[in-house]
Design a protein around this nucleic acid. Structure first.
Lengths: 349, 349
DNA sequence: TGGTATTAAGTTAACGTTAACTTAGATTTA
DNA sequence: TAAATCTAAGTTAACGTTAACTTAATACCA
């Protein structure tokens, strides 16, 4: 019941018979301490299994050497790569990373921001999808001068840096590629038409159609049936599978499909094959992200590669710069995507 | 340069002309405060964009209402499900979750433990793979009475609860299934023979072979070529693909393969199909985890389902119990797995 | 009407650490 | 040899908050 009190620096000091400050100096390797004293202190530290209280230290030092990262969905290669790259960059600089996941809920988004801000992290990287309530709260936190960088999320604030892959032109290129292959009826799976302003990939698709005077058929845009109240989530295999099924049952089915991401594309492929149709002859498919999976689908998936690690790395660097110098002006970086053409759109010769 | 000082509770108190304690009472909704005072305080809070300093609060309260979760690899559905379930259970109880990723390095494992312990989290859930240095450090942290629960990781300590899926019998059943189908040459992809003591799935495979007097052929066990110095990582599509390629080039190739997880199985399937062989007629394949992917492979993948969310949920509950009552005795729970038979091993009739 | 409860505060000290300053002996330098 | 510097400490106060206690006015009840 009664939690055993943790050993404190003062306990060590008392045991060794020195001032707490001397112990602090030993722990932090600074200031002058004689070898004899140092040894005695270290011995006591070991004996009592002492562990510095980071909370107290942080309170005194007014910084935590910790950065928060808010992800919408952990089961997403994009999130994973971002997190891994952010972590690597931070580790080099001696920062810790705490990750919070919001499960694509505005409420959880906010609670993640709050809990990180409350723990006095030195900065926050936000890589969740934009939503109104979340943006408002984020703006308030940014107002209070906590360094923030957003990744791939629509958000504008004077003191918040922004980094993203160019999803718009990625979506454009993917669709353009299908148009170049003479497809006229091209479907989009993974979002609803209403998402066109927040989902750049869909917007890119629409713009490509428009650029070639292909009329948009709303039946060729499909995603989750129910629109969640707050934030659209990640699109999955099932969504791809079901979306494709709907397309195949149309009187005039699409001959090509642009899926919002590779998982959705894989689901769509399953549906096509189940219907006894072939890829790409009957239906050509393009994914997005170039995940590890894309090489291992049958046939290998044409997809748009976005620089994930680079986004994470740059986000970390931008944040650290802002932590070091909070007077820096807003920076915005949009990174190029690359269309990777494989056999789900073009027959190998 | 000079970071603007955060507004503190004392600033609010000074502005309103009350004692800091009164502001504290307003913020925390406890104690007696008159409506008039409360309103004035809340107004000042809003005006000054005040945000309570969690570090100071934690120091005083001696608890953080935060739990740490250490994951080996974020890009792993297992990790993702665990994290999501843990988070859900904690959120209900008002706890925050901070996730650290160790990238399967013992050093990073340790640094995650330390950084969480230093931040005075109220407990830690560890779901990384076991390693010697990490275990030692974990034991020291457990010695200092910080509540800890390990998930799917070999670790024994009087005050540390343990939860895992029954990977041993899962591996056994998967292999048994292949043996029942009259396979004699059964390969394992995803780990090296040396891992047999730490990797229960491999051990289950070996025991099943042994139970049916099938001799173990070391060439039929393959994983990453170089054995990392510290912790074996997650097994991927590429490992499955390359492992299967090696198998197929053997003079006496296996007729069935048990892959350490679904991703590895998918890679193996690609290699089989590339070689012009069919599944399951030429090579039967079993995966592990029953990820979303398994339904969408061609043919659908036979795999072992482990209760991921349940593990996360129970881990959270065990930890909270231990946080509430640190005198509780060690608890160990091993959850059943379930073999899901699909068409990668059995032809649909 | 006196005495107990209730309400609305204020006061003090402490959580564990460390920045900044002070002390004082030992060593070096001019 | 006196002054300056270096080394090895100790002392004080503060980081921002809140638990525990105190004070004092008002309300309530027999």
């Amino acid at each position: 019941m009664a939690k055993k009190r943790q050993t404190t620096l003062t306990d060590i000091a008392a045991r060794v018979g020195v001032a707490p400050m001397t112990v602090s100096r030993v722990i932090n390797h600074n200031g002058y301490v004689s070898d004899g004293t140092r040894e005695k202190v270290l011995e006591a530290v070991k004996d009592l299994n002492y562990r510095p209280n980071g909370v107290a230290r942080n309170l005194k030092r007014q910084r935590t050497e910790t950065v928060g990262l808010v992800l919408g969905d952990i089961s997403n290669p994009y999130s994973a790569e971002i997190a891994s790259a952010v972590r690597d960059s931070l580790t080099i600089r001696g920062y810790n990373l705490f990750i919070c996941i919001s499960e694509h809920s505005a409420r959880e988004d906010i609670s993640a921001f709050e809990s990180l801000a409350d723990h006095n992290v030195d900065g926050i990287i936000v890589a969740t999808r934009a939503n109104k309530e979340g943006n408002e709260r984020l703006a308030r936190i940014a107002d209070s001068d906590l360094p923030i960088v957003v990744v791939g999320r629509d958000f504008h604030h004077d003191q918040v840096d922004y980094i993203s892959a160019d999803n718009l032109s990625g979506g454009f290129e993917a669709t353009q590629h299908l148009i170049d292959l003479r497809h006229k009826r091209i479907g989009f799976i993974g979002a609803a038409y209403e998402d066109r302003h927040t989902l750049k990939r869909l917007e890119g698709y629409l713009r490509a159609l428009d650029a070639h005077d292909i009329e948009v058929d709303p039946r060729l845009i499909t995603g989750r049936k129910e629109s969640a109240w707050d934030v659209p989530g990640y699109s999955t295999e099932s969504i791809g599978y079901e979306g494709m099924k709907r397309f195949l049952s149309l009187p005039n089915r699409p001959t090509a499909v642009f899926a919002r991401n590779d998982f959705t594309a894989v689901g769509a492929m399953t549906a096509v094959k189940e219907a006894g149709l072939s890829i790409p002859q009957d239906v050509a498919i393009v994914g997005f992200d170039d995940t590890a999976l894309a090489l291992h689908t049958i046939p290998p998936l044409t997809t748009v590669r976005q620089p994930m690690r680079l986004q994470g790395q740059l986000a970390a660097e931008m944040l650290l710069r802002r932590i070091d110098d909070d007077s820096s002006t807003r920076e915005e970086r949009i990174l190029d995507c690359e269309l990777i053409i494989r056999e789900s759109t073009v027959v190998k010769n």
